[in-house]
Nucleic acid binder design. Sequence first.
DNA 1: CGCGTTTGACCGGCGC
DNA 2: GCGCCGGTCAAACGCG
Length: 275
Amino acid sequence: MTKFNVEEESTSDLEEELKRVTAENKKLAEMLSVVCENYNTLRNHLMECMRKNGEKEVSPTSKKRKSESSNNNSNLMGTNNGNSESSSTDEESCKKPREEIIKAKISRVYVRTEASDTSLIVKDGYQWRKYGQKVTRDNPCPRAYFKCSFAPSCPVKKKVQRSVDDQSVLVATYEGEHNHPQFSSQMEATSGSGRSVTLGSVPCTASLSTSTPTLVTLDLTKSQGSNDSKSTKPKGDSPKVPQVLVEQMATSLTTDPNFRAALVAAISGRLLHNN
DNA sequence: CGCGTTTGACCGGCGC
DNA sequence: GCGCCGGTCAAACGCG
């Protein structure tokens, strides 16, 4: 008899726990969306600052061809799926005569991998089909060309090539925007290099895992490309963002009431969870 | 056998 | 016009 009571009690406990976890999950989802909002705000702010700082920068590209480096400031979103709110930054690109050909948003993502890994695979939550590989002149490492598996309905392409300066860094150049959500979990569940998170209709990828060596960084520099020296090379742990910008970001974060509220919720949620 | 990858051929833009 | 070069195509190939 007591055994039955104990079972009943544990069942109600479990239900209680389930409710609590569900509520916490909901809260976390809300927090996540708040954090993403803050991220977008910060990013726009940062882009603004970078543009102001970078306008005076001459870019002595030795490339003879028009290339993606000529409009590399058009999108710094990395694996973003094209928030249209960030599209206000390409107003100066209208000078280009054949700009209408460049229909795609171009973004770059730097991914740190092991140098021994020659696969040229960048896990970003989407499925790609390789359609070509080429050794280019300015880089002895081959460049791989990928199309989204949903092509032709999804026009997105990407190029993946090792950095000239640091062979352990893969440079993925994305062209276009996906017109479909990210693949479901079975695609990336085993990749181990990142988690795909879908917030509403805006999928995004973040490398939340701390146990993997892979590091995804956004190209927040002006992407001087392969010219010049190694000093412009993005390193995972030596950010190129000037100290002033770091200060600004920190200030923005700490003064943002939404961020504070989210932080408080996160901490209290964590404490609750531990108890 | 089907599907994805590889790889040499081909195409088109650009500079000279 | 020619050659270089990046990008794409498509047949061959390999793997499950």
